[in-house]
Amino acid sequence: MAEFLQFAFSGLTVGAIYALVALGFALIYNASHVINFAQGEFVTIGGMATVALMTGGGLPLLLAIPAAVMITALVGLALEKFAVEPAIGRPGGASVVTIIIITIGASIFIRGVVQVTLGKDFHRLPAFSGEAPIDILGARLQPQSLWVLGVTLLVVAALWWFFGRTRFGKAMLATSHNRLAAQLVGIDTRLVLLASFGLSAALGGLAGILTAPITLTKYDIGIMLGLKGFAAAILGGLGSGPGAIVGGIALGLAEALAAGYISSAYKDAVAFIIILVVLFVRPSGLLGGRSTERV
């Protein structure tokens, strides 16, 4: 029991991080049908910028975190404004595949810039509130895990409110359901795309900051986290918000249990086996593609 709980805690924690990354994929996918392969780099920037602001800038953790989230969001906005929008805006417009390739290029570029400016070493953030583990039924829970889960819950609640209650949130939702109709009712779909990149980047950055005290951070940490987040998004159903959360948690738990009961050598393989199985058996994912259209 204690052993299972231990695996479950670690699975939930890591799953919450995957869920945040997967939500980022969903946001941009909904606005443009593009898979943003720079999503993992947003995770890198969040963690690395916090480290740089604390060690280089001398900021306390409490200030460094919001500043780093902001920096990541700005990078996301810049990526859309200077790389994606010019491609879409040119006569004829770029195809989805072209934009995906642009995001791959951007991810390599961002990784390079982080490596050159902040180095290739591992960095560590202090846990937000001490490192003394809490004992629950014989399993040990790190306080940082509570931060990860708590902040993820808050983010989910905030997103739920934003998409369910606010005018612009509904406009973003409408654009994801029907871009043409959204334009025809006067929604500025370019602004929606810009906002989705900013929001995705902020979510990725936040994930990178939350996980840095547990997994450490490095210029290329985003590659694996990005792929795992992508696997979570596919598992839950690409473009579905609830799907991203369910997919993230499920993937995190599957990984932790596989690592615990089988072998930690197979931990990373779990995500990729899940992608393959989902694509073969149920390509729309757990919660995706349930449409209610009638013709």
Partner: peptide, 11 residues
Amino acid sequence: VPEGRQVFGPL
């Protein structure tokens, strides 16, 4: 009013 109605189906 676009061709094919184009309502926001899930909303």
